[in-house]
Design a protein around this nucleic acid. Structure first.
Lengths: 353, 353
DNA sequence: CAAGTTAATGTAACCGCTATCATCATCGGT
DNA sequence: ACCGATGATGATAGCGGTTACATTAACTTG
């Protein structure tokens, strides 16, 4: 309340406008003007087919006239369900999840749903907290990333009757619905691809070994398959912290310094692979002749770089669209039970291998 | 209700668990167990200092015992304010906004706020719709991208007493608080930088001319400054659709095909610049000797590529942190009025210029 | 020690909408 | 003409908190 030079502000401080503005119209106002009860207005808004056309149009007119917007919190409280979709992702920066998020939004925002977004930072405890606070909003559905959860999180997810979707991974035992692809099989596919291309010695650049267990599943698939098809265990470097191109370049340089016989490297994702590609260029390893590099993700620049980056295309967008589809069905009451949807992935063979 | 093979599902369909589970505890339950009134419980939870230590600990114990979680919707309805921050961004995929989002989240999620996120797809009408639906949640604050809004959006923003933050841009006339930097000055700075480096003829690769008016402001600064310091108007290509590396490469190739005298190109962002860089490599234009390339954004790979990309570092994270800071003050009731915060940008001179 | 504060708690009226149940025409069938 | 359906609408009790106001106890202060 330092008052004083308010005048220049475009928008007066709350206190000043308190008495000025007319309050937001309530449903009761609409009802009064339309000459019906609030119950009818409520019906007209959510299940128009239950209201006669004449009454409906009177109500529409009143809504229009007052520019009435329902108070969502009141509705949510009364119906014990909010027009909200909770989504928990492990990182907001990772372009993978952003695309999925955007697709979910596209598929659901049109239906009037709001996305409530939480960032777990790849931490299970953090996820547990987020799940708890999101469930406190009684969302229409909750989408979590991955199928691995803390005990508390698991309990909360099983205990609620909010539809749950686990994404970006598969499991034999979904809480409700799982939509994703096999992370492990990616590693398998790349190992075989390297074999096909005649690589003699494999390498791997990973990141966040301990925290991103999905990336770890890819690694496991790669290592196991490598051995089963006759390679010795791949040479490996792990990035400290989040995967970035700069770190990728550095880690790649270390890997090659220690294991100069490596002639095919799988990078945990395309950003890291890009760093490796540039570093290879600087160090004079010719790609793909002397050295093959493969990424994961098929992000935009993978098709633009030189040589073009071989990578694994993930169904980032398809996951989001499928989630929206399933959720629409689920919320509408059809499709009472969940299931597992494997959306697959695709190895994209380009110039770098 | 197709019933039948439910047995294998981990989580029974809603209908089945209806009568089973005990209902979630309500505040009244906590009050009863602690032997106080709900008013006291409410106080203990939101303003603990108003409750005596003894009572407080009894309440804490009851909360713990029941593992009570307040129903946020009820609280929001009663107090006409929800622990929610609405954020509207023009694109979820753009890494710039993701970083800002993450910073906002870091700064506020700890305080128990949930982020409600909307994607305007660079459309003002879409933004207007989102503003309306977000305000229906009575968020604790609303963050929008940019200072340009449709008439309806403007009215809604001025009309509400929810604190508003406009980000990623500056204005003389903020609705409430603006936190960002001058987009126009970026174009100015790069034009001067090219001059400094001895460029003779400038080029520009843009995108979404019509929709992304912030990018357009950068362009305007670049063009005007170019002319005022003695260049002829820069040669220009506009990408069709969203800026990607692939399109950037293509557009760059076109630009150079038509204007082979160009020796310094500003790309609307780093992703596009990366595409251009690769294309230059393919076409045999040596960077930076024959051709200089500058991006905008300073995304991770800009420091990793070869040559390293000169670019403009934007305060992506700082914007988010500042927003969180201002909002915390604002919501706490201190700092009743808004203001404009210029967080600046930095021209990062690297190998590509 | 009476009167005025201050601190701690209780009472109860909302917040604005949803959903259940009751009401009341209207209508086809017999 | 009577009766049970059927359809449209109204009355109203919550949903689960918050908060203004009332109440009571403890504490100053002259």
């Amino acid at each position: 309340m330092k008052g004083g030079k308010e005048a220049e502000r475009t928008k007066p401080a709350p206190a000043l406008r308190e008495r000025a503005g007319t309050a937001r119209p309530r449903m009761a106002d609409v009802a009064r003007i339309a000459g019906v009860s609030t119950a009818t207005v409520s019906r007209a808004l959510r299940q128009p087919e239950l209201v006669s056309p004449q009454v409906r149009s009177k109500i529409d007119a009143a809504v229009e006239h007052l520019s009435y917007r329902p108070n969502l919190m009141a509705g949510a409280l009364a119906s014990a369900r909010s027009k909200t979709i909770g989504v928990i992702i492990p990182s907001m920066i990772n372009a993978f999840f952003s695309v999925t998020l955007e697709a979910i939004e596209e598929g659901l925002a049109g239906a009037g749903y709001q996305l409530l977004i939480g960032n777990s930072h790849y931490e299970l405890e953090s996820e547990e907290r987020l799940i708890a606070s999101m469930l406190a909003w009684s969302p229409a559905a909750l989408v979590v990333t991955g199928c691995r959860h803390s005990r508390g999180a698991m309990r909360a997810l099983l205990d609620t009757d909010v539809p749950i979707v686990e994404m970006w991974e598969l499991t034999d035992n979904p809480i409700d619905t799982a939509i994703g692809f096999s992370q492990r099989d990616i590693g398998v596919a790349v190992a075989r691809h390297f074999k096909e291309r005649g690589a003699k010695r494999l390498g791997f650049v990973g990141a966040m070994h301990q925290r991103d267990y999905r990336a770890d599943a890819r690694r496991a698939g790669f290592f196991e398959t490598a051995q089963s098809i006759g390679y010795e265990p791949p040479a490996e470097v792990q990035l400290p912290g989040l995967p970035t191109s700069v770190r990728g370049a550095k880690a790649f340089a270390e890997l090659m310094a220690e294991h100069s016989d490596v002639d095919a490297v799988l990078c945990t994702n395309d950003v890291v692979a890009l760093g490796a590609l540039f570093e290879a260029q600087r160090l004079g390893w010719s790609v793909p002749d002397r050295l093959k590099i493969c990424g994961v993700g098929d992000v935009d620049f993978a098709a633009a770089c030189e040589p073009r980056l071989s990578t694994v295309s993930l169904p980032r967008r398809a996951i989001g669209l499928k989630i929206a589809e399933v959720l629409r069905e689920r919320i509408a009451g059809r499709l009472p039970t969940g299931g597992v949807h494997d959306l697959g992935f695709e190895l994209v063979r380009r110039g770098s291998t």
